[in-house]
Design a protein around this nucleic acid. Structure first.
Lengths: 121, 121
DNA sequence: GTCATATGTAACAAATAGGTTACATATTAA
DNA sequence: TTAATATGTAACCTATTTGTTACATATGAC
């Protein structure tokens, strides 16, 4: 159903805080209209509509026309799909890797702090 | 540790198929160098390095210098974080919503197909 | 029908992303 | 030391994203 062809669109849609916030609002207020949603943001209604079209391309939001208002609904299916993919593809991997990577991350943090001073013998 | 401030970077990093493929390769071949990784892609090494810097900003890849090669490692922690966030924030919501949303998605599919023909009385 | 409301479209501008080539630096091998 | 290897940086170009304003269309209230 939802596959790798859509993953770009899903992650892209989720990559911006304002769109995640829109998702939250639509999730909390199913059937909210475009204008009502836009009033929660300080960018223009058109900007919000563009964000909505990104969310709709990712199928994270679906809408239906009801008179002159377009009602918006949150669709969790794509998130479910990614959840499942991660559970099967990554979860098994975590246990064994996390400790070593944690060490490396710390080492890297140290490297960043000290990277400018280097002995020039 | 990893928080909302980083979510943009994480989703952004995962939003491109080539970067997800890099992650897969680095996960399969821990310690692979930049050039070796780049040879798996048909864009330039510099383009691959830019993708790597996106992945490193998201902390999905960490690296350590080993002589003249920079060794790359996959770090699953950010993915774990998102996994956890979704599990707690969305999972409970899915059960009740999926059926209705499925209906709406189908309705929308129908709307798309018929949106161009409209009676002009 | 007329007016207000809700949404949609077009055209444009600025910022960011994603790619290139050319050149620089650092390390290993000879 | 010299040459090959591995990576890094700078400058530049193009495409996409993200935003704007102005105008168009569709629906509900009167």
């Amino acid at each position: 159903m939802t596959n790798d062809q859509n993953m770009d669109a899903i992650f892209q849609a989720l990559a911006h805080e304002s769109r995640r916030r829109m998702l939250d609002i639509v999730k909390e207020e199913p059937g909210i209209g475009v204008g009502a949603l836009a009033s929660d943001f300080d960018v223009s209604r058109i900007a919000v509509m563009k964000h909505l079209s990104v969310l709709e391309e990712a199928n994270l939001v679906v809408s239906e026309k009801d008179g002159r208002t377009r009602r918006l609904y949150f669709n969790a299916a794509p998130i479910q799909m990614i959840h499942d993919r991660w559970t099967t593809e990554y979860s098994a991997y975590w246990a064994g890797q996390l400790t070593r990577i944690k060490y490396l991350a710390e080492a890297q943090e140290h490297t960043k702090k000290t990277k400018t001073r280097r002995a020039k013998s």
